[in-house]
Amino acid sequence: MASDSTVMVPQKAQTRPKRHFEFELPDKTWRWILLLPAVIVVVVLLAIPILWTLYAAFTDLHLFRIGVPTSFVGLKNFDTLLHNSSFWRTVKNTVIFMLGVVPAQLIVGMGVALCLDNITRGRKFFRTWFLMPLMVSPVVVSFVVGRMLFAEDIGPVNEFLRFLGFKGIPWFTNSTWAMVMLMIVDVWQWSSFMILMLMAGLQGIPPDLHEAANVDGATAWQSFWRITMPLLVPILVTALLIRIIDAFKVVDIVMVLTGGGPGQATETVTLAIYRTGVKGGDLAFGSSQAYFLMIIMLVFGGAFLFMSRRALGRSD
């Protein structure tokens, strides 16, 4: 391929007139031709919806009310939102979900990644196998896996607990356990992301650093906290941030596994937005909820970045 264009082209160019698809444009033109389609797609299909939703949040737009002029209502939607206890419940649920899921994934991810880094034989096998959950649709996971395994009467999880002498857990009828079940399903699926990210980070640490520390008499514990961790922090922060953002967006497993129930115990913000905006047709209120979620995500993401930066500054 390379030889074809490096050797043949100049000869052809000298002996024959240019074939018409070999038209030449200056790079200045090329860069725009290459970049613009992506820019147009992103602006039209991502940026405009974002702005439209912002606009909708300040109006009384409704999906099923056609022909009636839309009017601006100012901050009315947000005012309703802040005084809506059922919405606050969904915010609380989402934050609890995130606070449960992200640390659990960090612990599993760190533990497994360290073990994976420690071994040599079979590493490729484990790495490939750990990729599996990321390929599976969350709907399949929650359906078949969640609904079947956690079934209260004859699910394997409860049967195992009874076998150990415990009582079966009311996974679907008890508010707390329903949330725990969602967290377990999410940890099952997304710990792999943490594992792969941290694994990539660990592979980037030169082994002679640990050897040198070993020679100097450092324990494995010291070596981990003084060498591994500081070098791992940038990736750790990125991975955690991605997981935090994703945890705030959670909706599919909730919708399929518990439908937000029992009662409203596991309803997340995105599920609430779907219910008011799409099902209920209240576009304006749904939009204000969506922007509120965005604000919460920014606050938590920003706080996390700020804290990790401060923690970093202190350790240096």
Binding site: V42, I50, A56, G277, V278, L283, G286, A290, L293
Partner: peptide, 24 residues
Amino acid sequence: SIVLGFMSQRMFPGALFILAFLVM
């Protein structure tokens, strides 16, 4: 900055888009 502009779109929750897409 252009790359960052592209990436910032991924920060937004999916819930922010579905209502606009529905109407569109």
